[in-house]
């Protein structure tokens, strides 16, 4: 049964080599932009992503739902989620286009459900988790348990330099967020957001080891 479907999927994708190569470089660029959004909150990278995805999402949603206004709402919500959830994208688990597609699919599901049933229960993330459940499992307690372990140190070392400083200062040198801001010469808000980003990332990575 699995075989039939796989072969029909393959025959559906008539990708000559040149296009496949183009897609690879394109995927790489998209993945880099997503990571720049995640790690540096880069608005420039987000603008690239927006220009690539937003018109396509608009077209896909408009043809699927036959409604331009609803399609615009899907664009807005999807791109907002890309901005807020980019750190959940894991290039080892799939392509950036598939990830954005799943964000769009979830947003559309919740929007349509709101229209059809007047329910604002936003169930999509329960049905299609953007992070695998095994990763989410006990992420918190694992983080506590493993805090001093080698594994965590290895993960911390993969963080962007500026997040690494904040995490090490906060957890290992026991500096307060205010002290860190002063020490590094950056605003308190920046310390807080770097710490938040770093923790989200660590939780995801450490959860993923299990």
């Amino acid at each position: 049964m699995g075989q039939t479907v796989t072969s029909s999927l393959q025959s559906g994708a008539k990708a000559p080599k040149t296009i496949a190569m183009k897609e690879n470089t394109e995927h790489q660029a998209l993945a880099d932009w997503l990571q720049a959004v995640a790690n540096e909150r880069s608005k420039a990278a987000f603008t690239h992503l927006f220009k690539f995805f937003a018109p396509k999402i608009q077209r896909i949603a408009a043809s699927k739902y036959g409604n331009e206004t609803l399609a615009s709402e899907v664009v807005q919500e999807t791109m907002s989620n890309v901005w807020r959830k980019a750190h959940l994208f894991n290039p080892d688990k799939g392509s950036p286009t598939t990830w954005v597609y799943t964000v769009m699919r979830n947003v559309s599901f919740d929007l349509l459900r709101k229209i059809k049933t007047k329910k604002e229960d936003n169930l999509s993330d329960d049905f299609w988790p953007l992070v695998e459940s095994s990763e989410a499992e006990d992420a918190d307690s694992q983080f506590q348990d493993h805090l001093a372990s080698k594994e965590v140190m290895r993960c911390i070392d993969t963080l962007p330099e500026e997040q690494k400083c904040v995490v090490k200062g906060f957890y290992f040198m026991e500096m307060s967020q205010e002290q860190l801001a002063q020490h590094l010469g950056i605003p308190l808000g920046t310390v807080k957001s770097r710490l938040r980003l770093a923790l989200a990332k660590l939780k995801q990575q450490i959860g993923g080891e299990k």
Partner: peptide, 21 residues
């Protein structure tokens, strides 16, 4: 105005932490 849309979205620095178990 795409720039307006982008500015509105990126105005917040909040991120969505993956839902706790």
């Amino acid at each position: 105005d795409i720039d307006d849309l982008i500015a509105a979205i990126t105005a917040t620095d909040e991120i969505d932490i993956a839902l706790e178990d």
